[in-house]
């Protein structure tokens, strides 16, 4: 990172400026071009300096630590791939990946569909009080995850009198152990994610909807296309870039779920252990910084895999759409 920056810096004065008219040469000191370039480097340098120390170095060091045994105090010892084999043979590690994927899928799949429908409804010309609805649907996103998780802990209390259990009771459904059962915990956490993000994502979809030219719909109307046909053949294709963006960020976000299960399950319970929670527990609860770093590296690779899948899936959609 450093050498690359440095190199550019030295070469800076030989650059050719295009299209600009600053031909006036100043007698004193640096030329205008040099001054501009220098200012440019100066202005962007805070980020790169910070990033070198607190971004790039820690990331690279994580890869190094992943091959060391270290408790945070004593000597580090090189152990090769032992940290990886340790976590890969730990059933809880796989459980945490499984949990992360299941919670992510439950929390984002239905949510994105709901968000899209909500956006279409909010965009419809017949709907009144749009700004009130927008505020109501968006307000959960302003709430912190910690607050959300605490409120949902009480909503999804295991007691018969818990609000969700009591409501289910009205329909004759017996109380669910939301916090300690395999599916209960996952559904409760997924609901939290749904609740906090559905409005946010529908606002993003709404922005996309508003950028679709109205005459497309008018033309379709004239050709006799029904509303659902217009939705399927105009709205969805035109919205594709936004859908891809939302799915992409939702996927990455799901892989990083941490606060919800930590607070909701009140600790490191197996049924709600996610991969970041596993990482954090290894590091700051077990002082096993080697295996924690191996987990961080694995998470990174997992994110790359999912990003690639997303990328190819959206490319394929692109081709089949044309």
């Amino acid at each position: 990172m450093y050498s690359f920056l440095h190199h550019d810096f030295l070469e800076g004065n030989t650059m050719v400026s295009h299209n600009h008219t600053n031909t006036t040469v100043r007698p004193k000191g640096l030329s205008d071009k040099k001054k501009t370039a220098l200012a440019g480097y100066l202005f962007i340098s805070p980020f790169f300096l910070l990033f070198a120390v607190f971004g790039a170095f820690p990331m690279l060091f994580s890869f190094y630590l992943a091959f060391q045994k270290w408790n945070g105090f004593g000597e580090m010892t090189f152990v090769g791939f032992k940290n990886f084999s340790l976590i890969f043979t730990d059933p809880l590690f796989w459980k945490s990946i499984y949990n992360t994927l299941v919670i992510g899928l439950l929390g984002t799949g239905p949510q994105l569909v709901a968000a899209l429908i909500l956006a279409v409804a909010l965009n419809s010309a017949i709907v009144k009080f749009k700004s009130v609805f927008r505020v109501a649907y968006f307000v959960p996103n302003v709430t912190s995850i910690v607050a959300v998780a605490i409120v949902f802990t009480v909503l999804f209390s295991e007691q018969e009198a818990g609000l969700v259990n009591a409501t289910l009771g009205l329909f004759g459904i017996s109380p669910v152990s939301w916090q300690t059962s395999e599916w209960g915990a996952k559904i409760a956490i997924a609901t939290m994610i749904f609740w906090r993000w559905v409005g946010y994502n529908s606002i993003i979809f709404l922005a996309g909807l508003q950028s679709i030219p109205k005459d497309l719909y008018e033309a379709a109307e004239i050709d006799g296309a029904k509303k659902w046909q217009q939705f399927l053949f105009i709205t969805v294709p035109m919205l594709k870039p936004i859908i891809v963006f939302v799915v992409f960020t939702a996927t990455i976000g799901s892989l990083q779920i941490f606060a919800e299960p930590l607070i909701f399950g009140s600790g490191f319970r197996e049924e709600s252990m996610t991969i970041v929670l596993y990482l954090w527990r290894e590091a700051f609860s077990n002082n096993a910084f080697g295996t924690a770093s191996a987990t961080a590296v694995s998470l990174f690779l997992l994110i790359i895999v999912f990003t690639t899948i997303n990328f190819f899936a959206s490319n394929r959609l692109d081709k089949s759409g044309k």
């Binding site: 971004g55 590091a283 590296v297």
Partner: peptide, 22 residues
């Protein structure tokens, strides 16, 4: 090029560097 570097850093999950940062 430097701007591309900035875009790339946006894609890296913050948890990757968490332990060394600590």
């Amino acid at each position: 090029k430097l701007f591309t570097v900035i875009l790339i850093t946006m894609m890296i999950p913050p948890q990757l560097g968490l332990i060394p940062q600590y």
